[in-house]
Structures are given as structure tokens and as C-alpha cells.
Nucleic acid binder design. Structure first.
Lengths: 358, 358
DNA sequence: CTGTTAGCGCTTTCAG
DNA sequence: CTGAAAGCGCTAACAG
């Protein structure tokens, strides 16, 4: 093996590929110091005489020294990597969330290992193990189950839940006020005079959807309108029959308005209405959740509950950084407020008899 | 120090946090073998007697053993991490590209470290160093400069360029046929009868934009139409005056159609037209590049050159995996074909004099 | 201020 | 088939 190493070194003249990574020992030798001194000089921790430091830095620069992260991680038992698991990178919401996380992490000189777990419990758990193996400095996740967070916490890895909360262990979390969002959307429709409001909600036990549903109910209660339970339609993610079921809701229960509790469902609802030739606002009002690009570009624009997605990600990262800096601090919890953006897709209901009014 | 370790172990009863990671040595001791045997059993490389293997696997399972990735990386001098750098994670195109990469990497049990470099050369280079430090198994990037790829290649890290090509070293690449895309868009407009076609293109030296411009020119040449150079408008990324400049193009050079060479510019153009009250197709035709969601939802829909974005990402990851498996293979190059999706935003030009014709 | 020493946890010859 | 030994590159006591 020594023979192989040597021959590789001799072949180092090959254009393009350096034969061997340059190590601390190399630059120490070059500068005539020990490896420890080199370590101190380059990491900036501990005393090093200015002349020695200069020689070391110069040598490092000249030889193109890049410290080996795995050696450092092995020694320090923690890395500069943060594991991030989201449900679906293909969905603009999660992509933007990840962008916010990455931005903040980058500013603090941490790297993001990003995975998309498809809300699959088994995958989520498997990623937790991977993050454990990497000695991640922390993990930020949109949880689909509590097992991953438990496993991580048990092994001393800090977890931040974002968008949803499911953990059975105490941990930092940042969410938006889903109940308020649901209330804003529903109250807006009720104020316009709607009494039969269809609710399209994800069929999960997530706090997001539970919250939006709760807001839908409380808005009704505040307006003293009783909810027709048949107007509430839980739809499984990526269900192939989502649009058919929405159409059936329209046919069978005659809502005058629809509140779609996430961007995916809003898109489905919008398409169903278009295919059926139903006019937004005039025939059926529509409120979406999450202000994605298309909602402001279609005509009429879609009234939506906007959430500060990028900021959600940033806050999650900040929470994690705070905990890394101060491991003993109390679990942080942040709840960001959504806002209602009224556009042309909502209007007072038109009764069939009043169709010819202006 | 030994004392500290022991006391920590004794404190291991603390709910929630395990005192110390369980190591190979622990499970070897538990199973009554040496660490080497344990390593062989768990990694599946090398001979281990079935009974020993069983005991080892059982012990690993029971103690919740998670191998330390950094120790393995340090020893093997390469990790299961792939560095991915894209220009702007907030842009749906790059997000989808990343999603495709992640999906393929995940299937092969590699992790994606994702960074958004804002097309900033300095950041790109800094990330290259980070990936080097992590002993990344490879790097996939949408390059903004050639320096990063050179640095990585020089240090023996495989690079795949995706979407654009800038490297000065031979490396794998997967792009779409930008010239063909530009030609498709432009020929479509020329066939409709347009003779003054404005081109909105990013002001970069990227092969994407150069290709789309070349396609614009060659379509003109094939139709024997001479290009009025004043119709070509290079726009810097995130330029605050992008929409003003597009408006000025409209005013000063009276194009009857616009070809926006990326999704960002298409959105700008669409907004300018809307604000000015210009009707798509009737007053000005518009062709975009990249079939993002809103283009099929607005009315009329936008005619676009669609690119297989997710597939682009998948291919890039496959190219990298191929190279990891066979480091000596010839640099791979794949060029995916874009397709023209005709929607309502394009129609024959209306001359001012013919405004009243049906 | 600096060098010596001793590992972090894993893999890999190599000898048994 | 198995264990002993060495070492990946770095850092952190500790003694000088």
C-alpha cells in the first residue's frame, strides 16, 4: 500500500487531479511547526505567535489546503451539517420553506442536507438515522410522524419542527396560526353572505389541517351559522380522484363558496370550477390557503390566506441556531400570523333567482 | 478525562438523551467478537460466520447502533454526500431541478447537500471548498463560473454540470437543447406572420441564453427575415428596472410579439402587458420558456417552450452515479429536447389598419 | 506560545 | 473465518 501511495505521488504530475489531499501535517511541515500549532493558527482557537501564524496561513493558501470536515467531525463529535426533511420538494411551499432555511443556515456557515420524505413514516425514520450518522448539528423537519423526532432527541440531536407539530418530546417549533387562517378565510365568506361553504382539507392528523378546520368551525360559531358536516371534504394527498370528489361535492351539496385549505387543493378546486364552466365569484366563490404565484395571475385573482413561507423557514433555522448556541434554553415556539389577501374570486352569493340582477 | 466519561455513563439514566453514541466496539463486546468482525458483519464485506453475524446484527439492533458516517468517511476518504449548487432555490425551475436530483440520489442512498449560490462566483467557489471539505462523492451544479468546477476536478471530485455548461475541464453535463427551444419559439411566431419579435434574454454569458438567442437568430435566418437588433433586450437578473425596460421596448420598437427566454422574464412581460391593457394574442403575442404552473392557468394560456425539468435533474444525478461507479468512463453529455406547447397567447399579428377584421 | 501525546470510530491489510 | 494492529486527519489536554 505504501508502494501504491508513492507511485501515485510520483504520478502527481498528471494534469487535473491532485494525488493526495493536503493535510494539516503538510502545511505544518512546510511552515516548520507542529500540527497542533497549525491547527490553532487555522482554526483561530488558541495562541499562535504572529510570525508562525503568517507562515502557516501562507502555506495553507499556497498549497490550497482544505480542512477535512469528517476528521473534524469525528474529533468534535458534531458537524456543521443540518438535516432538513420536508414532505414534498416539488411543492412550491416546501421548496420556499427550504430556501428560507438554507439562506439562514448559509449565513451562519452551516450546510443543509435536504431530503424529501413524501410524508412517509418509514422514510422519515430512515432519514433520521442518516442525520444521526452524519452527526448533524440539528434537524429541521415538517414531521409526518413523531418517531423520527423521538429517535433524534434520544440521541441528543436537536430538532425543530416547522409548519406542523407532532413530536412527543419537547422541541422547538415554528408554525403559522392555522386556526386564525381558517377563521379569516371562513369569516370573509360568511361576511359576504355565504351560508354553505365547502371545506377542502387534507385527510391527515396534521396540526395544519386540524387548525384550519378549527378556524372554519369557530368562524361559523361566531356567526351563529351551523355547519353542514357534509360540506367538509377530507382529501388524501395526491389522491387521483380529488377532482372528481370536489365535483361531487359541488353537485350534491350545492356550496356557494369553497375554502381550499392548501395550495394543492386550491388548484384542484380552481380546475374543477373552470372545467364545469362555473364563474368564480359570480357562481362560486373560492378562497385558497398559501399565496402561490398563480393565484395573483389568474383572472379573477384568487382570494387567499397568505403565509410568510420564506420567513417560516428562516425562523426555524434561527431557532435551531439559538439552541445550538445555548443547548439548555427553553423550547422555543413561534407562531406567525397569516393574512387575508382579498382578490376577485370572492363575492356575495348569487341566489339562482337573482341571476339577472346587476 | 476517563473520569468524565464514566460519570457521564453513570448519568445515562437521564430520560431522553443517550449518554454516548454506541460504537462498533460496543456491539463487538456485546457479541463477543472483535471490532473487525463486527465491521465485516454490519457492512456486509468480508467473511463472517453465520452465528457470529446473527449475534452481531441482533446486538446492533438491540442497542440502536448507528454507524458514524464521519469515521467511515475519514477512513474511506469519500462520503455518501453529493453537493448540489443551484442558482436560486426560490425559483420554481431550480427547485424542481433539485427535486429531481434528490429523488435519484435518494434511491441510490446518497444524500444531497443543497446550496443556493445566487449565481455569485465567490459563493460558488466557497461552496466548492465546502464540498471538498466534506469529501463529497461528487458535485452537481448549475455553474455561474468555471472556477468551482476546476477546483473540484483538480482535487479529484467529480462534477456534473446541469442546465448550463461553463467548465474548462472535461466533465459530465446534461442540458436541454436551448437553440432548438429558441428556434421552436421563434419559428412559431414567424409562421404566424410576425416580423418584429422582441427577445427578452438574460444578460449573461450562460450557454442557456446564448443558445436561445442563437435559436432566435437561426429561425429568422431560415425564414429569411432580418433581425432588427434593437428588438433584442438583455436583462440582468433581478434587475429592478426589468419591467420598465420591457415597456420601453414595446413603446420604442413596436414588436408584435415577444419571446421571453426564461420563466422570470415571461412573468415580467406578462405583467407589463397586463398593466398596459394590451391583450395577449390580439395586441401582442407572447411565448415563454419553461412550462411553470401559472402559464397554463392564466387566460389565455401562455404558449411556452416546455423543458423536462425534473428529468433534467434525474439525468444529472444518474450521470454522476455512473461516474462514481466507473470513474474512468468518457465524459457523458446529454441534451434533452424541449417541446413547444401552443396556447392562446400567440396568434397572427393584427396590423393597426386591420383592427376591425374578424 | 509550542510540541507531544492520545485518541474520535471505523476499515483494512495481514497473520493466524 | 477471525483478531491484532495501524492509521484516516484533526483537535485538545497538558507539560514544557
Amino acid at each position: 500500500m505504501a508502494g501504491r501511495l508513492v507511485s501515485v505521488r510520483e504520478g502527481g504530475g498528471l494534469v487535473g487531479a491532485q494525488s493526495r489531499q493536503v493535510t494539516l501535517a503538510d502545511i505544518a511541515r512546510e511552515a516548520g511547526t507542529s500540527a497542533s500549532t497549525a491547527s490553532r493558527a487555522l482554526s483561530g482557537r488558541g495562541y499562535v505567535s504572529p510570525p508562525a501564524r503568517d507562515r502557516l496561513l501562507e502555506a495553507a493558501e499556497r498549497l490550497g489546503y482544505v480542512p477535512d470536515a469528517s476528521a473534524r467531525t469525528l474529533k468534535q463529535r458534531t458537524s456543521r451539517v443540518v438535516g432538513v426533511a420536508v414532505s414534498d420538494l416539488g411543492n412550491q411551499f416546501y421548496a420556499l420553506l427550504a430556501a428560507g432555511i438554507e439562506q439562514t443556515l448559509r449565513e451562519a456557515d452551516y450546510q443543509m442536507v435536504l431530503v424529501s420524505d413524501n410524508s412517509d413514516r418509514a422514510q422519515e425514520l430512515s432519514f433520521a438515522r442518516t442525520f444521526l450518522a452524519m452527526r448533524a448539528a440539528g434537524v429541521i423537519m415538517t414531521p409526518a410522524d413523531s418517531a423520527a423526532a423521538s429517535l433524534l432527541a434520544r440521541n441528543g440531536v436537536d430538532v425543530v419542527e416547522v409548519d406542523r407539530q407532532l413530536a412527543e418530546v419537547p422541541c422547538d417549533a415554528v408554525v403559522i396560526d392555522n386556526e386564525e387562517g381558517g377563521r379569516l378565510a371562513t369569516a370573509h365568506l360568511l361576511e359576504l353572505g355565504h351560508r354553505r361553504i365547502g371545506l377542502l382539507v387534507a385527510d391527515t392528523d396534521w396540526t395544519t389541517d386540524a387548525g384550519r378546520l378549527a378556524g372554519y368551525r369557530s368562524a361559523h360559531a361566531e356567526a351563529s351559522v351551523v355547519v353542514d358536516e357534509r360540506l367538509i371534504l377530507p382529501i388524501v394527498f395526491h389522491a387521483p380522484d380529488a377532482e372528481q370528489r370536489i365535483a361531487a361535492l359541488l353537485d350534491e351539496h350545492a356550496p356557494t363558496a369553497i375554502f381550499a385549505a392548501n395550495n394543492q387543493l386550491a388548484e384542484h378546486a380552481w380546475k374543477v370550477l373552470r372545467v364545469r364552466g362555473l364563474r368564480l365569484a359570480q357562481d362560486v366563490s373560492l378562497v385558497g390557503f398559501d399565496d402561490v404565484a398563480w393565484t395573483s395571475m389568474v383572472d379573477p385573482g384568487i382570494t387567499v390566506v397568505a403565509q410568510p413561507t420564506l420567513e417560516l423557514g428562516r425562523r426555524a433555522a434561527h431557532l435551531l441556531l439559538r439552541r445550538i448556541a445555548d443547548p439548555g434554553c427553553e423550547p422555543g415556539f413561534e407562531c406567525l400570523e397569516p393574512t387575508l389577501v382579498v382578490r376577485g374570486s370572492t363575492a356575495p352569493p348569487t341566489t339562482p333567482l337573482a341571476e339577472h340582477q346587476p
